[in-house]
Amino acid sequence: MDINWVGLSAALATFLGIWIGHVSVRKIEREVVNVWIPAGIALLAGFGLWLASTLTSNLPLSAASGIVGVTLLWDALEIAIRQPARVKHGHAPANPNNPRHRQILADYPEATTVDLLDRDPIGRAYSAEEIAALKAGGR
């Protein structure tokens, strides 16, 4: 029986595209002042990979290029729109060394420098007081 490599290529592109995109979006949005520059680069790279996927007759390569391309297009949206919104709501930590995030901390009471997701589940809902204590820097 022949081995079909298209699926493994799609799986690796899907997993690595999401993983690397997930980590990069958080890091880039945290450090960069003008998020539209990296978002524009991700947009161009995504469309570039889409074009590349149409120019190869190799199916595993075409699938991987297309999938990584679409994850980059999604990353552009995440960098420019969705991740800044999370920072404003306190769902992602603000970076006080970034002037854009300093402004968010000043304008949005829910914003925090604490990474509230960096903990193990406790099996029950937190009370409002506990969440306030977490945001104050306690664990």
């Binding site: 592109a13 889409w50 149409t54 991987a64 297309g66």
Partner: peptide, 12 residues
């Protein structure tokens, strides 16, 4: 042109 990758990425 090969549109396999484009269709697969939309499904993905």
């Amino acid at each position: 042109m090969n549109f396999f990758g484009i269709w697969i990425c939309l499904v993905t």
